[in-house]
Computed example of a mutant assay.
Amino acid sequence: MAEASTFVGTHYILGSWYKPGELGKRSAIFTSSGLAGTLFSGVLQGAVYQFIIDGIITLPIALYGFLIFPDVPATTKAFYLSEEERLLSSDRMSTDTSRKPLSWNLAKRVLTRWRWYACSLLFAISGETESFGSNNLMGQWLSAIGYTVEQVDYYPSGVTAFGIASTIVCATWTDHTRARWPVLIYMSLACTVAAICILVWRSPTGLKFFAYYLAGASYSGQATTFAWANQICADDDQERAIVLASMNMWNNVVNAWWPLVLYPATDAPRFRKGMIAMICTCAATLGATWLVWYVERREWRHKGRLERGAVANGGDGDEIDRKDADTSEKLDDAKA
C-alpha cells in the first residue's frame, strides 16, 4: 500500500520535467532500474535473508527520495537547482504544473475525453505480456525438468537482461522518431513467437531457452506506454496524473487474478492455457495500440483544423488550440 503511488508518481514527475523527445529514455532508465533489481534478486537466497535485505535497503532509499525528489518545475525546491535552472525548467515545458484545486470540472474533463479510457485499456491489456517474467515461468519450467537450484536461480536472469536491453534501445528509438506504437508491435510479435515455441512442446530445449529470453521484450512496453500517456496528456496536468494512476490501477486489477487462473504452478512446465492466453493478449494489445494511435491522430487533425481556421480568420492558432485542448477553466481565464 505504501509503495502504490511511487511507480505512477515517478512517471508523472518525469512527464513534468521532460519533453516528448526526451521522455522515453528517462522512462526507460527508471523502469530498467527496477528490472536490474529483479536481475540480481536471484543471488538473495533464503526467505529470511531476502526479507532483511529488502527491508533494510528501503530506509536509505526513502531518505534519498525525501532529499532528492524534485517535485514539479513550478514548485520545486531541489537544493541542486539554481533559481535560473528552476525558471528554465518551468519555461521549457508547455504545461502548467502549478497546484490547482480539485473540482467537478476535472471529473468532467477526464470522463468526457477518450484518453482515460484508451490509455487505461492499453496498459491493462499490454501489461499482461509481462507474465513470462513476473510469474517466473522459466524458473518453474527449469525446476520441473530437473535443473539444479543454482541453475533455476541464475538462468532466468537472461529474461530480465534482455528486457533491460530492449527497454533502453526501444525507448531511445522512440525519442528519436516520436512514434511509440512500433515498440508495442515489436513486443507483441516477440511474445507471440515465444508463446508458440513453448506451446509446441516437442520443440528442442534450446528453442525454449530462446523463447523465454525473447519474451523479455515484453518489458519494453512499460516505459513506452507510460511515456506515450505522458505525451498524450501533456496539455492537461491534472488529467495526466489521473490517467497515469488509472493505467497502473487497472493493470493491477487484472493482474490480481490473471496468473492464478492462467499460470498456476500446477500447469508447469507447459503452461498450455497461459501460452494460448499470451497469444490472445498480444493480439488484443495490437488492437488497443491501434485504437490509441487512431484517436490520438484524430485529435491532432481536429486541432490542426482549428489552428488553420484561426489563422485564416486572422486569429491566433495557439489560442484556438489552447481553447480546444485545455480545460473550460482555462478558457474562461483566456476570455477574461
Rank of each mutant, 00 (worst) to 15 (best):
S134V: 15
P182G: 07
W114H: 05
T148I: 06
W116H: 05
T97D: 09
N105C: 05
V110D: 12
M138A: 14
G158D: 03
S98M: 06
L142E: 13
Y80S: 04
A144S: 09
L67I: 13
L67F: 14
D96H: 09
C119G: 01
Y186W: 10
L111W: 06
I53L: 09
I145C: 10
V159A: 08
P73E: 07
E83W: 00
A161H: 12
L88N: 05
G127E: 00
L88P: 00
T148R: 02
G55M: 00
Q140A: 11
G158Y: 02
D153R: 13
I125S: 00
L88W: 07
T75F: 12
A179N: 09
I61V: 14
N105F: 09
L121W: 02
V152G: 01
S166L: 04
P60Q: 00
T112L: 11
P70S: 06
G163N: 10
P101L: 14
Y117N: 09
I57E: 04
F123V: 03
L189K: 00
S157V: 05
T112P: 10
S143A: 05
R86V: 10
T148D: 08
F132G: 04
Q151P: 07
D71S: 14
T129A: 14
T95L: 11
L189W: 00
T58L: 11
W173S: 04
I52R: 09
P182C: 08
L102Y: 13
K100W: 07
L63D: 02
I52A: 15
R115K: 12
P156R: 01
L121G: 09
R92N: 11
I53F: 12
D96M: 08
E130F: 08
G65R: 01
D153V: 07
A107S: 07
R113P: 13
S94V: 08
A74T: 13
L142Q: 10
G158W: 01
I145Y: 04
D175W: 02
W116V: 09
H176C: 04
S120I: 03
A171M: 02
I185P: 04
S90Y: 15
L137F: 03
Q140C: 06
D153L: 12
I164W: 02
L184C: 02
S134C: 14
S131R: 08
L63W: 06
A107Y: 08
P70K: 07
L122A: 07
G146P: 03
T129E: 14
L106I: 14
W181N: 09
E130G: 08
A179F: 10
S90A: 15
D153S: 13
N136A: 15
T75K: 14
V110K: 03
T58C: 11
L67A: 14
Y64D: 00
V152T: 09
S82L: 11
P101T: 14
G158T: 07
D54S: 10
F66A: 07
T160I: 14
K108F: 15
S90H: 15
R109D: 15
C119K: 04
N135Q: 12
D71C: 08
M138D: 11
P70T: 05
L111V: 11
Q151M: 11
T76W: 08
L63I: 13
D96W: 07
Y80F: 13
F79M: 13
E150W: 05
Y154R: 13
W141G: 00
E150N: 13
S134P: 03
T112K: 06
L88C: 00
S89P: 03
V152S: 02
V72F: 12
